[in-house]
Amino acid sequence: MWMDFGFEFVNFYLVPGLVLGCIYALGAVGITLTFGILRFANFAHGELMMTGTYLAWTFGAVVLATTGVVLHPLITAIPAMAGAVVLALLIDRYFYKPFRDAPTIMVVIASFGMMLIVRSAVQVIWGPNQIAFVRGIDKPNAAVREFTQSIDMMLLIPNKHFWIIGGTIVIVLLLHYLLEHTRIGKAMRAVSDSPDLARVTGINVEVVVRATWIVGGMSAVMAGVFLAMDTQTLETTMGFRMLLPMFAAAILGGIGRPFGAVFGGLVIGLAEELVAYPWIGTEPLISPGYKTGVAFAIMVVMLIVRPSGIFKGRTF
């Protein structure tokens, strides 16, 4: 049974699906927070993620060139998060703030413009070509392989996947702590619930908005670094390609529901990988080339059947 089914399924479909799901989940958290608190679909979110990942790579490359030390991508993610947060706050202050009371559609279109501006800027600075984010082949974790050595149930999971899944669990736990147990986190939920009531309650909405960019920016950079660790490459279009599955995840979980977005991300990631499994016969059920179509299909079905998402988020 494991020989015919499990080995291939777990190693080549289930684990990669989970990994992809983690990346979508972290990206979708920022989308859903911005949607809930600032009330607009931020098309530039993928670019924030991409820019942060470029910053991480640059930091690693500079350290390597000056000291000869190879930093783990997760270390380089720390200054990158700081950089991306500063960028997000500057963009908010000088670009989105004047739109605060404008109709949603204007802000959405403004964010579309910001997406193009940021991507072009990155292309000007780093060039349009692919960059190797991590070199070499990440072999399956030896300990896990040894532990499950019989070919019948051998697990071939590279270290990077442990980092991604473990890192995502840690980030989601931190996010949970922030939103449920801290003053600013509760205020973020309150503003997401009703900005008007938050204002007449005396909550400083601008502080909450800044907190949203900080949390969204940091999780976006982590998603980007995880994605680059997984694919081992950097591209200026990586953020844009993530946009659709991230929105699909946010809508699936319910807009304004961060944990719904995490759940939605996992579902979309798993679905994209699992549809390529040969469920019937020996051919992939759906050709891997249509992977992105899966996220799109899930999003369309959700919007028709249950636009408020699984965890009953906001509808517009």
Partner: peptide
């Protein structure tokens, strides 16, 4: 302090969290 006529509580927050938000200032 002001209590609006409608939508005067944060529906997704617990009762206690609503009170905590009331004390924001």
């Amino acid at each position: 302090s002001y209590v609006p006529q409608t939508q005067n509580v944060f529906v997704n927050l617990s009762v206690q969290e609503n009170l905590e938000m009331g004390a924001w200032t």
